[in-house]
Amino acid sequence: MEPIQLTKDDFTSNQETRWCPGCGDYSILAQMKKVLPTLGIPRENFVFVSGIGCSSRFPYYLETYGIHGIHGRAPVIASGVKLANPNLKVFVITGDGDGLSIGGNHLIHLFRRNIDITIVLFNNQIYGLTKGQYSPTSEKGKITKSSPYGSLESPFNPVQMALASGASFVARSIDRDPKHLEDTLARAAKHKGTAFVEVYQNCNIFNDGAFLSLTEPKEKKKHLLKMEHGKPFIYGENDELMLTWTGKNFKVVNKDLNENGHEILTHDENGSGPAMEFMLASLSLDAQLPTPIGIFRAVERDTYDDMMAAQMNATKKKKGEGDLKTLFTGGYTWTND
């Protein structure tokens, strides 16, 4: 068979993109279009499934198969698509409201089952399509239309949720870093099993600047930690800072000094253990510590779809290909003459 030659234009649908000008969603769409042709998968085998919200318009803008579903339920539709036809490459596009609020239950069960589906969650920490209420990832005390005196809720940390639910691939990226986003999406798409990517995405209308400290050229080096497999956690304006481990918690030190001799950590995507993964994910909640992006976990474990196929094959081998006559007469039968 000839290798498939596709370009990003092959994936552009004839639908007009209807996100607000300046929305972070454009960047995610652009990086996705770069990634898709590189996967070696025929275009007709892609299915994009979404729920409801700004992010969930995504499938309309790609020339692939797609379903724009109902609020929060993209993971279940996608599960049905993938299990019915395991040859398809299935993506779920969701947001912080869609995926973590109304659809939270489905997301955790998808992680648990490890069906071979790639999930991209656009996290803008606000409800955009309903025009600006706080979301399950909004910071506590957030002033919005529905919380004029400040919201009373503590936010979810999507990466922690995915890790705790047993997702086999968990990553975070950011809309304003196209290269990092492209690489992360590519890694996620190639992962066999449920892959989860949280993308920090700026809503310039209702929550502008939510991730400013991670995107402004002057600020971001001070706050953004790009995790790389096998390397120590180094960041800072001149890459002078390093994350170390005191035995109890993280400590940021000057990488060349490390006066107290704390443990120097090296990042291990392939299973640094749930405790370390969880601690790394929690960094984003602490303003004093850097926010990590990159891959938190990438491990192989059996996928639900493979196991389902194996079970079906084993049953066929044992019982033979089912025929209706055997089915009908399986119980106690008698003849009336």
């Binding site: 499934v49 539709i77 996608a78 599960s79 049905g80 019915a84 079906m312 049953t315 066929k316 089912g322």
Partner: peptide, 29 residues
């Protein structure tokens, strides 16, 4: 009856049950 090409999916809730069935219908089941 898996040997009859029957796939059963015990979902996490009623909504997921019908949602997966609809997804499967889109994919040709």
């Amino acid at each position: 009856h898996k040997n009859y090409d029957v796939k059963t999916f015990q979902a996490e809730d009623e909504i997921a049950g019908i949602g997966a069935a609809l997804g499967a219908a889109y994919a040709g089941a």
